[in-house]
């Protein structure tokens, strides 16, 4: 990809850089531009992109749980139907009591995304109107898309195992028993899972 071809992308980036404090930004590839901002900058950046840069279409919104960092990363993906560019606006908030501004007055359908993220990750959006329950009904555990929600554990507690498969053997353990191999505990994390 030659430099020329990324002109539009670079232009957008320069514009945003001039206007806002960006934590990090890059032209990822053709048709993909990424900026990272603080949560309080979200609405100004999105509004600017929509009103001034023709990023009129709201393509996607997603959330990633970075439990190691104690943060959620929320990404807004916008689409400019004229320049054919996807703009990623990323922001990070704390996992505990993180709050984001509601943006469904900019794009109506963001409401759906926000409802889902609220339900699945437990992020609150200031002023979001919409039924609490979206996909999950009568859910009483922690928001399930959080990394610390262990599905295997949940299944074990919630359902019983169908009888008839107790005779299954682990190949590695089976051969170990046959040979009296003693595997030290610290090595077990490298065994096949």
């Amino acid at each position: 990809m030659s430099e020329n071809k990324l002109n539009k992308e670079q232009l957008l980036l320069d514009l945003l850089k001039k206007k806002f404090i960006l934590n990090e930004s890059a032209v990822r590839r053709a048709k993909r531009v990424e900026v990272k901002v603080d949560p309080k900058e979200i609405i100004p950046v999105l509004l600017y992109a929509k009103e001034n840069s023709r990023y009129i279409s709201f393509a996607h919104m997603s959330c990633v749980d970075w439990i190691e960092d104690g943060e959620f990363e929320v990404v807004y993906i916008l689409w400019n139907p004229e320049d054919k560019i996807n703009l990623f606006v990323k922001t990070r908030i704390s996992r505990d009591n993180g709050v984001l501004p509601n943006i469904d007055f900019i794009w109506r359908q963001a409401n759906t995304y926000e409802r889902e993220i609220r339900e699945m990750f437990g992020i609150q959006f200031e002023g979001l109107v919409g039924r609490q329950e979206f996909i999950l009904e009568d859910w009483e555990h922690m928001p399930p898309m959080r990394r610390d929600f262990d599905t295997a554990e949940f299944v074990k507690k919630t359902y019983f195992k169908r009888p008839g498969r107790e005779d299954a053997k682990d190949v590695r353990e089976f051969v170990q028993e046959r040979t009296d191999e003693e595997l030290p505990d610290f090595a077990k994390k490298y065994s096949r899972d």
């Binding site: 190949v171 590695r172 051969v175 170990q176 046959r178 040979t179 009296d180 191999e181 595997l183 030290p184 090595a187 077990k188 490298y190 065994s191 096949r192």
Partner: peptide, 26 residues
């Protein structure tokens, strides 16, 4: 390596082959 561990039986010393290979892979 697919970590099946069948090799350990053939090793007279029964070394922990799949584990150390996996450690190298990781």
């Amino acid at each position: 390596c697919i970590s099946c561990g069948l090799c350990t039986e053939s090793c007279p010393d029964h070394m922990h082959i799949p584990e150390y290979i996996n450690a190298i892979a990781r």
